[in-house]
Amino acid sequence: MKISVIITLKKDVLDPQGKVIHQALDGMGFADINEVRQGKYFEIDIKYNDPKKAKEKVEEMCQKLLANLVIENYKIIDAQ
């Protein structure tokens, strides 16, 4: 089954890329943005059919490699 995960920067971590994207969007006329934060998205096709077990494994992957928990949060957003 496929598990989707997003990794986002924690609130108090500076995101210079997000800031520049914000500025670019602003320059293009999207003037009503408060803030842009950039993150990462992973789609993991895992050899389990049990969503609970699959999610547990992916969570372990997030903690051990996919996210650096000093600066990032992870969230499993979809399992299908």
Binding site: V13, L14, P16, Q17, V20, N68, V70, I71
Partner: peptide
């Protein structure tokens, strides 16, 4: 401890 982020001015 800690991490190394992208340089402040990119």
């Amino acid at each position: 401890p800690g991490v190394l982020l992208r340089n402040k001015y990119l």
